[in-house]
Design a protein around this nucleic acid. Sequence first.
RNA 1: GGCCCGUUCGUCUAGCGGUCCAGGACAUCGCCCUUUCACGGCGAAGAUCACGGGUUCGAAUCCCGUACGGGUCACCA
Length: 508
Amino acid sequence: MSDSNVRVRFAPSPTGPLHMGGVRTALYNYLFAKKLGGKFILRLEDTDQTRFVGGAEKYIIESLKWCGISPDEGVSVGGPHEPYRQSERKPMYRAYAEELIEKGLAYYAFDTSEELDAVRERAKQAGNANFQYNHITRNSMKNSLTLPAEEVQKRLESGEPYTIRIKLPRNEEVKFEDMVRGWVSVNTANMDDKILLKADGMPTYHLANIVDDHTMEITHVIRGEEWLPSAPLHVIMYQFFGWEAPTFAHLPLLLRPDGNGKLSKRDGDRLGFPVFPLNWNNEETGETASGYRERGFFADAFINMLAFLGWNPGDNRELFTLEELVEEFSISKVSKSGARFDFEKAKWYNQQYLRKFSDAELAEMLLPVLEEKGIAAPGSNTLERIVALVKERAVFVSDIYDEGSFLFSAPTEYDEKSVSKKWKGAESVEIVNDLIARYENEEFTASNLEASFKAYLNEKGVGFGQAGPVLRIAVVGTMTGPSIFEMMEVLGKEESLNRMRKTVQDLG
RNA sequence: GGCCCGUUCGUCUAGCGGUCCAGGACAUCGCCCUUUCACGGCGAAGAUCACGGGUUCGAAUCCCGUACGGGUCACCA
């Protein structure tokens, strides 16, 4: 990894759990930085005190950790630009806003929220869909541009609440080259004088963002497309401060699988899949949401899947670990259009990763699943053999149990369909009894059991299609599953025969 | 509604002027394997490259327009 001054940041707002779109943004930032030998910084944009949600910060840190996206600097790890929480940086922002006022590039505004609401309402009724506080309307508002200097001074000294707004030029083309979108251009005539410093003394996103990115020496700003409309404002702010602007990259949005619009936090459980990396429980509100980790996803698979929602290496390869993604990632290959999320594909990724593990590793991972279900785990040797038999049909580790539950404990009921289709009363009872008698003195290996079974078929003149399902029902209660003889070998003689005897009783 | 961004199989996408009557993956369907189910293998179906004009010997690829979709218009980020 070469020396590099590339510095990127992921700057979420702790207003709730981080959703997968956010994780992807973090991931692309991380990949971009690591690929170029740069630094990945985690900053918290908590300037809105009214929307702060307890536990969100911890959730964000844990999520990134689970994903393997580790910050080089930031709230969780510290660094040379501490603090990394904007609320803790509050004192520094005002000076920057005032610097702009001194330069004549910003002004004090005394309009209250209520007054602003009223103006907007009036504009709406006059047929003007949206009121903008801009180079025209600011002349009829209460601010340091319209009020006499003495009155401004008086208001400021009296402690009257005020905001600081940027003073945008009247008609200027703002251009910047976005790494994924190319040249983007907007005229200031279509922009408004955004508030930089709020009445509570906190900076808005725009101010805090620019000041922090500059002071933290951020070189590339990689964020979601929802920020594209405010990027020109940020470009102007860099000009106003006389700072070099970072390079921007606006990522395409993650779209909902159904209907229109971007994937939102509420879509998740409604559509049957998680939108969050981890389970979320807000103890204050009782709000809960499910996460990929608890759903049984491997972090690698989750990351791999996420990386491919809007990016690909340009060839047919699809399976990449985080390290491999770092190696291959290129922001120029990020697509411009939104990606509709598909849970089926997500599961496919997990299945691919599950298969990379050995039987022993999967057995180990299955242990906690069994414990949670209250299932007594067999010895590790038996467990591994069960894993070997069932793993091809599993997408998640827990599927190994779900698909082979009858290998852990005797079935408590018989699959109705199988029984009605293949169980022929006395005839079947006879077959099972014959097999019990036969197997009692046999060595219990799959090959032996199968050979003996076939010999029985011959003697009896019965077809496999008739007796096979009967044996299967007698041992595992259903017609599906791995090879019956393999299963019997794993189950062992005593268990297998007991189950057969019980079936004769139950279905006899 | 204003502004900005986007538009290749159902979905994710490859493609950056000729190798494309468009390739891969997921999903779907069929066959084979397995005397079960799944896995796996093979194959099929599926995109007039949103539409209309240009530019060019030649366009999915460049330009313009239209349509549609999305984002954004807060003292939220």
